[in-house]
Simulated assay, not measured.
Amino acid sequence: MGFFDRLKESLTKTRQSFIEKIDQVVTGRTGIDEDLYEELEEVLIQADVGVSTAMKLVERVRKGVKARNVQEASRLKEIFQEELEYLMGEKITPIQLNPEGPTVIMVVGVNGVGKTTTIGKMAHNFKEQGKKVLLAAGDTFRAAAIDQLEIWADRVGVDIIKHQEGSDPGAVAYDAVHAARSRKADILLVDTAGRLHNKSNLMDELRKVHKIVAREMPGAPHEVLLVLDATTGQNALNQVKIFSEAVNVTGIALTKLDGTAKGGVVTSIVTEMAIPVKLIGIGERMDDLRPFNPKDFINALYGKTKDNA
């Protein structure tokens, strides 16, 4: 089974709470009225699309119906898909690589979102591309975090820079940047502690790590990737806002899309945030983390096949 088919399978619950509910709202109706638009908006909000995006989408559908002079409710589904595609766009935003030396990618996020696993899978993907990868165990607050990253380093077959539990995360970042240079690594992936985004002292620590990386390598970090858990739904948007205030988040990796009914949150992240979704994760396999392709996502959401998408 290819990645597109696995994506389609992983979006089953989201499809049921999102696309199939829209079909239910439209089915059996003859005309299009205000009640229909209100029900459509309600379905979108319940599918974790978010209030602002739901209102924007319904307004676009309303204008699309008027512009085409559509009378039949059944045609609203096709207009909705067109407007969803318009809002999501077709642009794939790749990870920015530094052509002049090591690319430093700082990975941030709260506890439990799959941050360390995301780093491991990224390391695997980069290694598959023939790149030399180095990991930095910057989450020194938990011994388990260092151990977990070390397991991934062994599994993927890459080097790791680590200090003892409780040591200064900034010192790990410092050593890692210098090691990446001296070992001629192509990619340095820096893990950070899983911060509770409402703990200001931990966010200050994150700023410090960012500052040290930038000081030791001008232009770095080249990416600050925020890992979000799709199962948290709209709470993910709050995390985007708060982490963006602390450090310059350049991209989002959305994990755990498999098995959640809250995949609709992708829509609000893409349309409401100025930060692109760069990666999505749909399972435990090494290759279950891939670049986010909005067109493929919508086609998978609608249960289409790759050929007739």
Rank of each mutant, 00 (worst) to 15 (best):
A153K: 08
L206G: 05
I22H: 00
I105V: 12
A145W: 02
R285I: 00
G157K: 01
I275C: 10
R290K: 11
A309T: 07
D35W: 11
V70M: 05
G138A: 02
K132D: 02
T250M: 14
A144I: 06
V158P: 09
E205D: 09
A274D: 15
H178T: 12
N238F: 13
N125G: 15
A253Q: 15
P276D: 00
D175L: 07
H222V: 12
A171H: 07
I146T: 03
E82G: 10
P294A: 05
L76H: 04
N299Q: 04
T267F: 15
F3Q: 08
E20V: 12
A137R: 01
A123T: 01
V43N: 05
Y86A: 15
V177I: 04
E42Q: 14
R29Q: 01
G264F: 06
E223P: 15
E41A: 01
G114C: 00
I45W: 14
A220Q: 03
G138K: 02
G170Q: 09
A137K: 05
R195L: 06
K63V: 13
D168P: 00
P218Q: 03
Q164F: 09
I22N: 05
F126I: 10
G109R: 02
L44T: 11
V43W: 05
A274C: 11
K162E: 13
Y37E: 09
A220S: 08
K208Y: 03
G170A: 13
T12L: 14
L11W: 10
G101C: 01
F243Y: 14
V70A: 06
G120W: 01
A137V: 11
G114W: 09
G170I: 06
T267Q: 12
K21C: 07
E41G: 02
R183I: 00
G283A: 07
E39A: 04
D48E: 12
G2L: 12
G263H: 09
R215L: 08
K63C: 11
D204S: 13
G130K: 01
L11A: 05
R15W: 05
V277E: 06
E90C: 14
L7K: 05
F141N: 04
L196T: 10
G219T: 03
H163M: 13
Q81D: 13
H163R: 14
R15T: 04
K262F: 11
E83R: 02
Q24V: 05
G170F: 08
R285E: 13
H124Y: 15
V209W: 02
A309F: 12
V107E: 05
S268N: 01
A230E: 12
A179N: 09
V209K: 01
A214T: 14
G157S: 03
A214G: 11
R195F: 04
L189W: 04
A180D: 06
T255G: 13
V58T: 06
G50S: 11
R195P: 09
R155T: 06
L7C: 01
M106R: 06
Y37C: 04
K127S: 10
V108W: 06
I95W: 12
